[in-house]
Design a protein around this nucleic acid. Sequence first.
DNA 1: ACTCAGGGGTG
DNA 2: CACCCC
DNA 3: GAGT
Length: 732
Amino acid sequence: MEEKEAFFKDLFRFDEEEEDEPLDSCFCHVASILRHSKARVTSHVSPLLPSTKDIFLRSVQASTPLARTISTPLPGLKTPLTAELEVVYETPPLTTPTLKKAPGALQRLTAGPGPTGSRQRANGGSGMPKASKKRKRGQSLDMMPGSQQIFKGLGFYFIPDNDIAPARRMRIRKAMEWGAAWIREFKDGISHVIVDSDLNYKDVLSFLKIQSLPAHIILVNEVYPAECISFRYMINPRQTHYQVDGYHEVLAAERIVSAAPSSITSLALKSAKGELVRAPQTPSRTEGSDQCPATQESCEAQIATIVNKEPIQAHTAEAVTGGSNSGPKDALDEAIEEARLVKDLPLVDEEDEVTQSMSSIDSDHEGSDTESKRTKLKSKGSLDKSWQKNFSCMQKHDGVNKLTSLNTRTIEVLRQMADYYDRTKDHWRLIAYRKAIAALRKQEHKIMTKEEAFAIPFIGERLALKIEEIVWTNRLRRLDNTHAEPNDEVLQKFLNIYGVGYSQASKWISQGHRTFDDLRNHANLTNNQKVGLDHYDDFLARIPRAEMELHGKSVREAIHQVDKDIQVTIGGSYRRGAADSGDVDFIISKPDAPIHCLRTLMLETVIPGLFARGYLKVGLATTSKEDGTKWHGASCLPGSTVWRRIDFLLVPWEELGAAMIYFTGNDIFNRSIRLLASKKGMRLNQRGLWRDVIRGPNRQRVTQGTLVEGRSEKKIFQILGVPWRPPEHRIC
DNA sequence: ACTCAGGGGTG
DNA sequence: CACCCC
DNA sequence: GAGT
Ligand SMILES: O=c1ccn([C@H]2C[C@H](O)[C@@H](COP(=O)(O)OP(=O)(O)OP(=O)(O)O)O2)c(=O)[nH]1
Ligand SMILES: [Mg+2]
């Protein structure tokens, strides 16, 4: 269990068609362009302080979750049975019914000891009061600096008045962190009443046992504080978008203002918002319309509401005209209200969650039917192979979602966290982050609540919380903190030097080095580190695909000049179809030639030749022994001054398949498929697939095993039971 | 509490 | 061996 | 940090 992913579905569905057609030609270059699974940072990460522009855009994102949250209970039809009892499922809301995600959730539910409870119990559902257990971690308030406390001096009263429901707890926490006082008695000092979006004005009145709300108290729904935080600004609360259902009418009556034209909007629009139909209008945002980090849909969904905001309006006049179509949201609210009314307000804390769960549970069951059928077909042998489906290598990863980029902001923040952990204290933490990012990237929906996040493989409680925080506040305090460490930037900088890892970088920093000149003049550098330093920018730069081809041409030419039978393949990200690569990875082999011949040829003829013509510049890790198979160095194309990293992998013909798998990667795919092999009592390395591997304690290998297959990539996949994935689908 | 891929080169 | 890299 |  490691690199996994719910996927059996896709797997079996697609594979039969793909099976025999690797079809190396058409890939999704695009796909891989943006994704770099490497932990190292390429260029410097954006500062956390958002520009005004950013703020605008971010609020778009930030508010989206709320919209979702709101709409969640919409399905309305909770099953009376389940609703009243026990379990509080933590399953993704709205999103779930969409097929893709169902299996994941399903697995989650069925995985545990009990059919339902395990996950929940882990959260403190059983023995101890859940609040207390949860509070233990990450629950202490992390106050914003005083100057930023936009809610300072304000008193918030929340309805329902507790922090049991996770979303509300988060809301309350955030409010307090930004300076608000959480007032739990309905008394003086309350400036705002923040109401769960699934409650209406009547509910509020009956909850508070009052006839009407005092005029000085501002009544808003749960969306409001989040958006204030996003804008770092106390937004005008009187916009329809923040109003509690049923309250605007009161206001209207009071002030003789016409109510928002919301009711006109049809339900159809609502569902359009959901995802199926893209709202046709993409209102021109004054600026930065090109950089909207959120998904299109969420942008669109929010534009309408954004537009109404005073602070924005001031700056984006155009936007106002563009999207003054305040439709979807209000319609949504009303629908919710209706659903609520039918349902007589329960005011139970977990209520909304139960409702959510129902919708997702239902869909899960539906999904599970088809799912289990498929699974059955495959594993009818007798063995339960379902455990393997969680391996990442089993899933088709083409990286297309990278462009669709729904969770880009979240991913970006998590990636920065991963960068921070780059070979730091906890190597495994870094890996966990990378897995989580990969999983998140594949999501087809924007993840906005921790429940949604939690349902994704490789995202556990803690990351789910972080994700929710990111979505809510567009930042992660943990990250802010790391950024606050002054040495963090230098550390990252040093880490990007080829040949420098965490250990060395830390040492240098503790020795007082801060700049490259410090290193050049006062630190002991290994040869490789010197090269890495001198070509810092070169090695960090990506290589356009077109240039990759030039490298291929040069090398191939040089090699064929010596021996025409040698096969030269560019592997790595290039073979996976990437639009740009970090280095050039050559796989070099010759039919039925002993490896030592190949090595001799390369080492004694080809490589010196490439040096002679000025293509190769330096060797960084050259094979010394008689059994070496790799050569790592740097090259430079004629006419260019940029050095590129070059890798040669020398491969005996009979190991070509295994070598291809290895050198094609990506790294995560490799680790995944290798782990899978090991779980099956085999071992996969760059030379072949081995069986009868005996492992002792700590999974240490005792036997090397016997070679099963090395020649054919496909056979190795097949033996391992991994559906064939062409290189461009190995972007995990 | 345990695992998280498997291997190669450098110094 | 620790470290860094693929 | 996640999964078992
Ligand atoms: O830890 C690692 C790193 C890499 N590889 C394999 C997979 C990878 O595809 C190949 C080449 O490595 P490289 O670092 O060049 O990665 P890439 O996939 O080619 O990406 P990039 O575009 O950064 O070069 O070696 C591994 O098996 N394990
Ligand atoms: Mg590469």
